[in-house]
């Protein structure tokens, strides 16, 4: 299985753990990810608030245009990148007026996109292309006895509803955790918002939503929260101490990328497990599984 890979800006900064663990897990599952040469920032859900939807979608489509020369479907490990890339892709496929107008803009840099690719998420690829059977076969150290809250977040399942999972009550993350031998926690907040980029301009939004998410995860008996989204991971991991300070709680629940937990179950190297980037230490919760 070969794909074009769009790492996203967070892979070089706040979510290095995501990049390392995706690399390791992909290798273990024989998924070849070929980085899109000279990719640019997708603009997340912010850029269109300054320059408008059209400009942002065209900027995003630059990546798709470059990837199309290779003809491989695009895979990304970031929910925000997925949202912009997939929405742009869908517009290219369905909206002729948009396609003509966008290609006129892309032509300014000698590019063109015909809308022949699919945009996928790494979670989607693991579930639907690799398959849970193969994942279960690869497990060396079963996560038996570990209760995991699968926090899917918002844009993963709702950017394009029903693209690969239910937009309100997604189940694939839980099935994946069960394939690794873990127990999926009863976690009603699994697809609610974490506050996204409000961390800097309106921190209280993130702290309030984070509190609700932690409360729900702990009530479900979770020892670890896993997520596919760099923004969710950052907000829940780095701001957990501020949530505790604001609400007088003492949550101490590690927040990992789901690929990190896969790396643990597959017995991959410590480099691939990438625990050193976690602010809330996962060592205590995972000491008996990680080597």
């Amino acid at each position: 299985m070969r794909y074009s890979y769009y790492p996203g800006c967070s892979s070089e900064a706040t979510a290095k753990a995501n990049a390392h663990s995706i690399e390791g897990v992909a290798k273990a599952l024989d998924v070849q990810l070929e980085e899109i040469p000279d990719w640019n920032c997708c603009g997340a859900s912010v850029a269109s608030g300054v320059v408008g939807d059209f400009t942002q979608l065209v900027v995003t489509a630059r990546n798709l245009a470059i990837a199309e020369t290779k003809g491989l479907d695009v895979v990304t490990g970031c929910s925000s990148c997925y949202m912009t890339l997939a929405v742009a892709n869908k517009k290219f496929k369905q909206d002729e007026h948009f396609r003509a107008k966008a290609n006129e803009a892309l032509a300014a840099a000698g590019l063109n996109y015909n809308g022949t690719l699919q945009v996928r998420q790494f979670l989607d690829v693991i579930i639907n292309d690799v398959g849970l059977d193969k994942v279960a076969q690869k497990v060396k150290k079963s996560l038996d006895g570990l209760t995991v809250a699968g926090y899917v977040g918002c844009q993963t399942v709702r950017a394009l509803p029903f693209e690969f999972d239910d937009p309100e009550q997604p189940v694939f993350m839980d099935r994946l955790m069960e394939a690794l031998g873990a127990t999926a926690a009863d976690f009603p907040m699994r697809a609610r918002c974490c506050g996204s980029s409000s961390t800097i301009p309106a921190r209280d939004i993130v702290l309030d939503l984070g509190y609700k998410i932690f409360e729900s995860a702990v009530a479900g008996g979770a020892q670890v929260i896993v997520t596919p989204c760099p923004m969710c991971q950052l907000n829940l991991d780095a701001y957990q101490s501020l949530v505790n300070r604001k609400y007088g709680t003492n949550f101490n629940i590690p927040v990992l990328f789901f690929t990190q937990l896969m790396a643990v179950a597959f017995g991959l190297s410590l480099e691939d497990q990438a625990f050193k980037y976690s602010i809330v230490s996962p060592y205590e919760a995972l000491v008996q599984y990680s080597k």
Binding site: C9, A13, A15, K16, V59, A108, L111, I279
Partner: peptide, 23 residues
């Protein structure tokens, strides 16, 4: 998780800017 130095500019920055102004 917080690099103090910015990432390298992309090679096609000139092209990207042209795309933005055209759009």
């Amino acid at each position: 998780r917080m690099p103090l130095l910015p990432p390298k500019k992309i090679k096609g920055l000139g092209g990207l800017k042209k795309i933005i102004s055209k759009a």
